[in-house]
């Protein structure tokens, strides 16, 4: 399944590597942005299935609120990817879960597949072990 994905990440190298991994998997990376405002702009102007959201962005720790907004109000499936998962320990309403960085291609692949299946409403029995689910 090919998905339209937005990467929200302020480390350019991490974002680039993630883009390559996702494109290798056959997904379309619509854009890569580094702050919350740009992210909202992209989501308003494009159809986005899935957003991979870092918590600390170039405009501060704005990822949590951004993820909640994208998930609850803008119809985007949201997966957090962060080096500091403690920041979302109590979960964020309307989002799927969090993947700890650094991670590897396989973990990204299984987490993205899982999130997209949830979006499609397909039954998913087991979540990938690296992914911490909310709710």
């Amino acid at each position: 399944m090919t998905a339209r994905i937005l990467i929200i990440e302020d480390e350019a190298l991490v974002a680039m590597e993630l883009r390559f991994v996702l494109e290798d998997l056959g997904h379309r990376v619509v854009d890569t942005v580094a702050d919350a405002k740009s992210a909202r702009d992209v989501v308003r102007e494009n159809d986005i299935d899935l957003a991979l959201v870092d918590i600390h962005l170039s405009d501060g720790p704005t990822g949590v609120a951004l993820g909640r907004e994208l998930g609850q109000e803008m119809g985007v499936t949201v997966l957090f990817m962060t080096a500091n998962p403690g920041m979302v320990r109590n979960g964020v309403a309307g989002t799927i879960g969090v993947l700890s960085k650094p991670t590897d291609e396989r973990a990204v692949q299984t987490a993205v597949d899982y999130a997209l299946r949830r979006r499609q409403g397909e039954p998913v029995m087991y979540a990938p072990p690296e992914l911490q689910l909310f709710g």
């Binding site: 480390e11 190298l13 991490v14 590597e17 390559f20 991994v21 080096a83 500091n84 960085k101 650094p102």
Partner: peptide
């Protein structure tokens, strides 16, 4: 520090 781990990891992959 944690971010550096992520950047180094991405750098190796790239």
């Amino acid at each position: 520090i944690k971010n550096i781990f992520a950047v180094v990891s991405a750098l190796i992959a790239l």
